[in-house]
Each structure stands twice: as C-alpha cells, then as structure tokens.
Design a protein around this nucleic acid. Sequence first.
DNA 1: GTCTATAAGAAGATAGAC
DNA 2: GTCTATCTTCTTATAGAC
Lengths: 216, 216
Amino acid sequence: MPTPPLELSPKAEAILVGALEVFTRDGYAAASMDRIAAAAKVSKPTLYSYFQDKEGLFVALIRRLTQTATQQLLALQDAQNPQLQDEPPEVVLRRLAHAVLDVFLQERSLCTMMRLIIGESERFPDLSKAFLRGIEIPVLEALTHYFTAHPELNLPNPKGAAYVFAGSIMFYLLIQKVLHGEEDYPMDAEGVIDSLIAVLTMAPPATHLDPSSSSL
Amino acid sequence: MPTPPLELSPKAEAILVGALEVFTRDGYAAASMDRIAAAAKVSKPTLYSYFQDKEGLFVALIRRLTQTATQQLLALQDAQNPQLQDEPPEVVLRRLAHAVLDVFLQERSLCTMMRLIIGESERFPDLSKAFLRGIEIPVLEALTHYFTAHPELNLPNPKGAAYVFAGSIMFYLLIQKVLHGEEDYPMDAEGVIDSLIAVLTMAPPATHLDPSSSSL
DNA sequence: GTCTATAAGAAGATAGAC
DNA sequence: GTCTATCTTCTTATAGAC
C-alpha cells in the first residue's frame, strides 16, 4: 500500500480536476502551470502551496487515477468472488470482460490516464510501475489464478491465457478509444468478447456440465 | 499510399536519427530543437532548412517509422502467402506471432514509435490515423481474412478473433517492453504465444486433417 | 548551404502585499 | 491563505555573415 486512503482538501481536489483537464489536453510537458491554475480557478501561488511543483502535481494526479481504477477493479472482484464457483466459466468470464470494459468506458479519464502513463513512461518510470503494480499485474494474477483453478478449460499455460484475456480487452480500448479507431475501423466490443469467451471455453466439446473433472 | 517511396538526403537522414534519439528520450513537447541539432551534429538553421518546424520534423519521423513497420509487415505477409494453404493453422499462426514479435523486438524504435504515437494521439491525431491505417488495420484485416478462410477453426467471429490475436501480442509488447514490466513481472513471450495458438486452434478435437469442410 | 548570434516570447517558480 | 507582479531561464525560429 504505497499511499494511505488520502483525504484531500476541496481546493486540492479542484486543482486536480483542473490538472486532469489540462494534462489530458496538452500532455505533461506542454501543459503550463498557468493554464492549470486558470482551469482550477486558483492563482499560481495557491497551486504551488498545495503541490511542490509540476512533477509533484502530475504524479499526484496519476496516482489518484490509478487508485480509482484499482478500487473499481477490486470492487468488481469482491462482487464476483461469491459466484466464481457457482457459474460456468463462459458466464463468469463474459461478465468479467464486460465489467472491465465498463469501468474504462464509464470513467473515460481512465483511458486518458492510460495514454498519459504510456506517453510519459520514460520520464516517469515510477508511474508505469504504479500502474503495473496497482492494476495490470493484479488483474493478470487474478485471471491466472482463475484459469489455474479451472483445469477443465484445458488451458496449457494459465499465465499466457491471462495475457490473452487482458490483452484482447486492453487492445480493443487502445485501438478504439485511445487512438480513435472507431472513425476508420469501428468494431463492436461484443464481437471481441464473443471471440474471447469462445476460444477460451471451447477446448473440450461439452464438458462444462461435468464437475467430476474438477478436483478443486 | 499517402507518401511516395521517399528518398532522403544523407543530412536529412542524420537529422531524423538525432530526432529519434531526442524525441525518444524527452517526448515531443520537452524535446528541444537545440538538442536535436546537437544530436544530429548540425546547426539549428540547417535543421530548419530541411524541415519546416518542430511539428514537421516530428511528423516526418513518425511517418517514416510507420512506413518501416508497414514494409516489414508486408514483407512478412509476402513470405507467408505461398504457405498459407499448405500448412495447418497452428503452424502458420505460431510463425506469424513470432514474426510480428521479432519485427518489434529487433527494431526497438518501433516500440518507441508506438509509445510516442499513443502519448501524442490528442495533439497529432493524424499520426494515430496513419498508424491505424498503415499498420493496425491491415494486420487486423489480414487476420480476419485468414480466420474467415479457415472455418474449420470454428471461430464464431473472425474479426473479433483478429482482435484477440493482435491484442495478445501488442499487449505483451506494451506491458513488457514499453512499460518495462519485465522488471516486476517478467513473462516469456513463448507462454503468450502458446496460449494464443492453443485457444485459437483447439476448438474441434481433431479436424485439422480434414480438408472436406473447407470449401474455399 | 551552413554557421554564429539574436530576437521575441513563454515557461516554472517565488517575493512580498493583503 | 491567497493574490499580483516579477525573476530567471529556456524555447522556437530567423537574420545576416561566410
């Protein structure tokens, strides 16, 4: 747990909102503290009284967005945990895919965050690390754990299968929502999810109703 | 074909090499024309005599990298085309996955290009478009075409399956090579490819040797 | 064609008034 | 605590010498 629950003063919140707007539009280097102060409707010295400098403000913003995403994904996991053993994998995996997509589509700042983290990954390697440790690695580990616990899916390499699952969804978001592929090459998320669930669950012709093969 | 074969003078090439180095390290906005001129070992006015301004230089660089990637992938396709009908899908798909990975791993500037394009996708939407039209969309279309021509794979949605294939590989590159996940959560590419080929080809138990189901 | 030197402006950060 | 005004530095881009 790198950062405590983190209660912020209202003014600090306002600054982060303005910072999100400007960093989103301009990127890190081209964003100016003047424009951020204007967007947050505070003066520049006030801004510097809440955050040490531009780097500190950017790091605080991205860490907060990362935390938001982590919490949303944890809530997802908690909501699904009681059902994991009760329903067939194609149902569980499909619901999970939809839920992850919804988290990113309903909170569009998470797509922005992904873009900023990737774009600034050389200047701010710590933010990449926080993104990986807070979001991507936990997701991959949870998927790996699920695939390992379901040998009836007949997946030879659960960790690799986790990359296939997460990669399909994140790549879809990247192409369609970050790079705006919807304009040139629109694609329904449903088609990606259909294919993903189909390929991950259709290994054995019809063993889904046979619980004897699962010793866990 | 948005740009002709594009022969550049040696000095323009040197400038692009320097520009790649500096843009890679600093990103677009933080890169200075002074440092680019120094890296290319020319003076600033020379730089401005070959490229209109900073934007023009960046666009020229990214377009050139995009073209390089496109050409490498086209060469791949040509090399594989004669074999597409002769060998079973698990062999063709595995070789393709390895080849795409190799293209990006051996020419690391392509990973850099991906990072820069994503990071600057709001400021330079035309570069995103060129990346999508020159690389991602052709790859997705070729994969869709292949999956459509191989109904024995039993993939319900070929376009979605193309996203699964490309997404798994690109996500692997993004996590491991762009965001440097290798430090925290190393993963062998082989495991991803194994899973990918397994899930895409193991739908029917053993119909690979039955050509009668393929009417194309 | 290529350079040195510079113009014109915008950036991050702060001193000091209130 | 918050603001106006300012300092310093670095930026892009070019004028003019060679």
